[in-house]
């Protein structure tokens, strides 16, 4: 890794760390407790940014998959795959923190609401993405196949959301909490979203770097074999 990258990464890690500390401070000390649902509402400040990041991750995969099929540069494949990895981890967190929030508020772990269900379907699609990648007969094919899934899977998001919305018209989450968002709440949410977006960028840089290293190892092995 050269100096420019090291500097950029250093700045990003610093920024991410500072934002995360600020986010924690705002969530637990600065923002007042929401009146109706109580302290549990504080999950919202991390649940929503995590959901946002997982959606962003799959969108980035969609774009990089198109760019990979078009330009055939390994870096786009590395970014697409790293982004799915981070996206799947964050979707897992959405699917865990969602029920933890729902249980004390609505008395149920799971509701087939449009957002939760779409997250679940997305999670399954991108698990399949990772599986195809690891089970492809050769890495080049895996890269192409996963790019196709990255494109075709993402197109499904709006259709799934729309369908589930029609399917379950009763919709508990439209009212997140009664009072609506006050200014301190919105501020806290925005800082949390910024913190998690920076965390996402960091993780993708780190993880796509590993993909590049793996490609390098394959290249060196071929040289060695000759």
């Amino acid at each position: 890794m050269n100096g420019k990258h090291a500097l950029r990464n250093g700045i990003l890690w610093g920024l991410g760390f500072a934002l995360m500390i600020a986010a924690l401070y705002m969530v637990f000390i600065y923002v007042p407790t929401e009146k109706h649902t109580g302290i549990i509402q504080r999950i919202f400040y991390f649940h929503v940014p995590v959901a946002w990041v997982s959606f962003l991750a799959f969108f980035i995969t969609f774009i990089s998959s198109i760019l990979y099929l078009w330009k055939r540069q390994t870096k786009w494949d590395a970014i697409a795959c790293a982004s799915v990895e981070v996206g799947v981890i964050f979707t897992t967190l959405v699917l865990i923190t969602g029920p933890i929030w729902a249980k004390p508020v609505w008395g149920i772990w799971w509701t087939w609401d449009a957002r939760l269900t779409t997250s679940l379907v997305l999670w399954l699609i991108y698990i399949a993405y990772l599986l195809v990648r690891s089970l492809a007969t050769e890495p080049a094919k895996g890269a192409r196949y996963s790019a196709v899934i990255g494109i075709v899977g993402f197109i499904d998001v709006p259709i799934v959301f729309l369908t589930v919305n029609m399917w379950r018209t009763q919709h508990p989450t439209t009212i997140i909490f009664e009072g609506g968002l006050t200014t301190p709440m919105l501020m806290t949410l925005l800082v949390c979203i910024a913190a998690f977006t920076v965390l996402y960028v960091l993780l993708v840089i780190q993880s796509s770097g590993l993909k590049t290293m793996e490609a390098e190892i394959r290249r060196l092995r071929i040289i060695k074999a000759e």
Partner: peptide
């Protein structure tokens, strides 16, 4: 592999 890929994507059609 086919059902794993196919089923989540066709959820809207099945519903």
């Amino acid at each position: 592999m086919l059902p794993i890929l196919f089923l989540p994507v066709v959820v809207p059609v099945i519903v």
